[in-house]
């Protein structure tokens, strides 16, 4: 979504400032401050020592930007491994959804086959069921497969998404029919038409789906808590929660941990903001 070039903070030509615009900026900046301050305070606290963090009155900037809290995070817990688990979980779910959802979405959107409507209704019902209703048996299945406390346990159920299928289906449906017909006359098979002609045309939708799936996977907490209780197999979301149990009120360590844990998604957001916004605008809730 293109926007006029942002030049925040610069007042519109001093001298003849429209009071309405000024008031709007005042309200929006105040709100932005409320949005941003917790992040600022998290960052500043992470670089303080424990005694400095509880000094009265509080210091705003850290006195000497201490990094001890960060090394403590990595020694107290297998934090690096947890970050790796989160990355693999995110990768597994995202790739899985891109492949499985796009295949099914293409079939539902562009192919005729018997039982299509019934199958589609079944897919629709998957969409309506809250995750909590499935977790107990899902846990049991993972247990039977001998996958508790493993990385595949984190991403297995999340690779299949009804939401992703619906999202991509809408985009496939919007493509002109002539493309496929021309390819078919040239003798291309269904898989080839799908892979080299149709899939590239829905790239924006794939990007949006990838980005929001990545976000939900990185941030997911309930499912990892259920299947991976061993610290070395936990993703960072659950790992950070267990850090809290160890350093109850040692806020520099907790802030350092939470900063490290949320940073990858923040970086992805800064790099791919457009896709985040698009993905969110397209989606209703987590999927």
């Amino acid at each position: 979504m293109p926007e006029p070039t942002p030049r925040a903070g610069r007042p519109a030509r001093a001298g003849r400032v429209d009071p309405g615009t000024l008031a709007t900026h005042a309200v929006l900046s105040l709100g932005a401050l409320v949005m941003l301050f917790p992040f600022v305070w998290q960052l500043l606290t992470a670089f303080k020592t424990m005694p400095e963090s509880v000094r009265v009155p509080p210091t705003f900037l850290p006195q000497n930007w201490d990094t001890a809290a960060f090394s403590e995070v990595f020694t107290a817990l297998p934090f690096a491994e947890m970050l790796g688990n989160s990355a693999l979980n995110t990768l597994g779910r995202t790739l899985g959804q891109l492949v499985f959802c796009s295949l099914a979405a293409y079939a539902f959107a562009r192919m005729q086959f018997r039982g299509k409507n019934v199958l589609f209704a079944v897919f629709l019902s998957v969409l309506m069921v809250p995750a909590q209703l499935l977790i107990l048996p899902q846990h049991e299945i993972i247990q039977r497969l001998g996958l508790l406390n493993s990385v595949p346990a984190l991403f297995l159920p999340g690779m299949f998404s009804a939401f992703g299928t619906f999202l991509l289906r809408q985009f496939f449906m919007a493509l002109p029919k002539e493309l496929e017909e021309a390819a078919r006359i040239d003798g291309a098979g269904p898989l080839r038409i799908f892979w080299s002609i149709m899939l590239p045309l829905v790239r924006p939708a794939l990007a949006a789906l990838a980005v929001i799936t990545a976000m939900w996977s990185w941030n997911d907490l309930l499912w990892p808590l259920v299947v991976n209780t061993d610290p070395t197999t936990m993703p960072i979301s659950a790992g950070l929660a267990s850090l809290e149990g160890q350093f109850v009120t040692n806020y520099p360590v907790l802030m350092a941990g939470s900063l490290v844990a949320s940073l990858p998604m923040l970086i992805l957001y800064v790099l791919l903001q457009r896709h985040f916004v698009q993905g969110i605008a397209l989606s209703g809730s987590k999927g």
Binding site: A32, P38, S258
Partner: peptide
């Protein structure tokens, strides 16, 4: 800026 909290890890948000 307003969107930033939404994409942030909820565990981290809770701790902060």
């Amino acid at each position: 800026l307003y969107f930033l909290p939404f994409i942030t890890l909820p565990t981290a948000v809770g701790l902060v």
